[in-house]
Each structure stands twice: as structure tokens, then as C-alpha cells.
């Protein structure tokens, strides 16, 4: 960060940062009980960094909520703990396993953990009485997200109605909600995947090690490379082998594919992303591939 700008120009990354910080402060000022949804992925880590900056030298004035699918990468959980400890924020964990045990969601053996997260998350938001939940969604991720507002209104059932969204003008955000409703807040709406990496590189912040190239036993399924794991037994014909890989997104390990890569530094990742020919979700997220409108459907139900 340059301290002086003789020509009063702000780089696009600084402009994005300023916009996001503005959103964090606006929410902290206007909502009774905000919470930051932390997945451990790079986007939510950038959110943590922005929240840290927004309130410094005070602590982040809201807790962090993580939905534990039970199938999370241990490297991701370790990184989460480092962040939470360093910033001294309260961590709320909503466990899919517990939600299944308590009958909040039903594991029929066919529904992915990612989908079961929806019910678990909505329950945790309601239970905690949270009125605003920060999410790391970006508009460049997917077509259904391109029209998402920064403040995205959810009804008493946590649902998103694309036709009932409020117009959002200038930097004037409307945070009015009724009892039982909540607002999803997307402070990094205008960031692209490349911006996220540029920022992580510039800030020198910790992200889960699985984003970097490493050796891993993987097998191929539906054109994706999945991690060998007790949660994800190989099917006939699938054979695991050790490869040099890294992850482009972080989620339920039974569904999140990795790509073969030797990129072991942020700069190498940036170089790789800059020439990538397939979207991060298209490449490595089983949950988005089921239908062209998959994301739109999950969003309506109350997904992140």
C-alpha cells in the first residue's frame, strides 16, 4: 500500500478494498447481529482480512460462522484456527453431522454434504439470531451470481427471490429487514478470481496449504481429480495414484476436485489463473455441474 498518491489515483485493487471495507463498516453500524460466514476458502480469507482492516485497531465486532461438513480438508481447518486465534474473534461451528443427528437435515445417502449445508446453515443463522451474514460470493463466479446485490435480502425461510431484489444505487445500501428475515452481504461482489489472488499475494496472508502444489493420492471421477479418502471410497474401475496437484476451490472433499499443477507460490498461481481456460467452479466443483441452473436453484433455497 502506497501512502502517498501524488496524482490521486487509486489502483483498482485499492478501490475494491476501499469499497469492501465500506460495506463491512456499514453492516457493523446498521445491523444488530452480523456474522461472517467463513468457509476456509481463499474468498472467505480475503473477507477476514478486509474485516480486520475495516475495524483496526479494534477487533472484528462480530463472530465467524463455519459450517463443518464433516468432510472438510484438515489443512483448511488448521488455517481457519490460525486466523481465528490471531484475530481473537469468536468462532461458531455449525456441524452438518450434528444437524443430521438432530434431524434438522436428512442424509438420504444421495444428497451431497454441500447441499445439506443449506439446512444446517439456515438453522445456525436462526439459532444465533443473526440478522446479517457476510458471504464470499463474487459476481464473476457464475451467471446466476451476476445479478446478485451486495445486500441480498432473504425471507423468513432464508430464500432468495431473484425478482424481489431491491435496487442498489451508488454506495447506499438498504439494510431494512423484518423480524425473522436476514440479509446476506457480499462485500467482495466486484472482485474477480484474479483480484483475490493478487490481493492475497500483496497482503502476504495465510491461506490453506492445499491451494499450493503438493503430492496427493487422487483418482479420476466424472473428469475430476478427487482425493482418496475414507469418506469417498473408490468405485470399481477407479484407481488412486499419487500426483502433483493443487486445489482451485475449497469445499467438501468428496466433491472438490483438484488440478494437476506445479504452482507452489502465489505468483505461480496467478500465472496459472491468468491463462486458465476453465472457470474455477466448472473445473473443480461437482456440485455446480448437475445442471446449468444449479447455482440458481441452490441460491433460491438459501445457499451462500
Amino acid at each position: 500500500m502506497t501512502a502517498t498518491h501524488s496524482d490521486y489515483r487509486l489502483s483498482q485493487l485499492d478501490q475494491l478494498e476501499a469499497e469492501s471495507i465500506h460495506i463491512f463498516r456499514e453492516v457493523a453500524a446498521e445491523f444488530e447481529k452480523p456474522v461472517l460466514m467463513f468457509s476456509g476458502g481463499k474468498d472467505s480469507i480475503v473477507m477476514m482480512r478486509l474485516a480486520e482492516k475495516a475495524f483496526f485497531p479494534a477487533k472484528i465486532p462480530f463472530p465467524v460462522l463455519q459450517v463443518d461438513t464433516g468432510y472438510d480438508f484438515p489443512e483448511v481447518l488448521a488455517c481457519r484456527d490460525n486466523w481465528v486465534n490471531r484475530l481473537g474473534v469468536r468462532l461458531v461451528v455449525a456441524s452438518v453431522e450434528e444437524a443430521i443427528a438432530n434431524g434438522i437435515v436428512v442424509d438420504d445417502g444421495k444428497t451431497s454434504r454441500n447441499r445439506l449445508q443449506i439446512g444446517t446453515l439456515l438453522h445456525a443463522l436462526e439459532e444465533g439470531g443473526f440478522t446479517a451474514a457476510f458471504g464470499g460470493g463474487r459476481r464473476d463466479e457464475e451467471k446466476a451470481r451476476a445479478k446478485e446485490r451486495v445486500y441480498s435480502h432473504r425471507d423468513e425461510f432464508g430464500q432468495w427471490d431473484p425478482k424481489m431484489q431491491r435496487p442498489e444505487l451508488w454506495s447506499l445500501y438498504n439494510g431494512r429487514i423484518h423480524e425473522g428475515e436476514h440479509m446476506r452481504i457480499f462485500p467482495i461482489s466486484n472482485w474477480t478470481e484474479l483480484d483475490i489472488w493478487d490481493y492475497i499475494g500483496r497482503e502476504g496472508i495465510e491461506i490453506p496449504s492445499i491451494y499450493f502444489s503438493h503430492q496427493r493420492r487422487v483418482f479420476e471421477r466424472d473428469g475430476m481429480l478427487l482425493t482418496e479418502s475414507e469418506f469417498n471410497p473408490t468405485r470399481p474401475g477407479e484407481e488412486a495414484s499419487e500426483r502433483t496437484v493443487r486445489f482451485r476451490t475449497v469445499g467438501d472433499l468428496t466433491l472438490t476436485g483438484c488440478v494437476e499443477s506445479t504452482a507452489s507460490t502465489i505468483d505461480e498461481i496467478i500465472a496459472e489463473v491468468a491463462v486458465a481456460r476453465v472457470t474455477e467452479r466448472g473445473a473443480t466443483r461437482g456440485d455446480d455441474r448437475f445442471s446449468e441452473a444449479a447455482m440458481e436453484d441452490r441460491k433460491k433455497e438459501g445457499y451462500f
Binding site: 483498482q12 497482503e203 502476504g204
Partner: peptide
């Protein structure tokens, strides 16, 4: 693992916005 921030030469850092 923490990332090391090298002197950044990435174009994204200095770009402006329209």
C-alpha cells in the same frame, strides 16, 4: 503455510478501474 509476498510485479496490482 503462509504465503510470501514478493515485490509484486503483477499487472493486477497497479491497474486502474473503469
Amino acid at each position: 503455510m503462509s504465503t510470501t509476498s514478493s515485490a509484486n510485479t503483477n499487472q493486477g496490482i497497479g491497474m486502474d478501474l473503469l
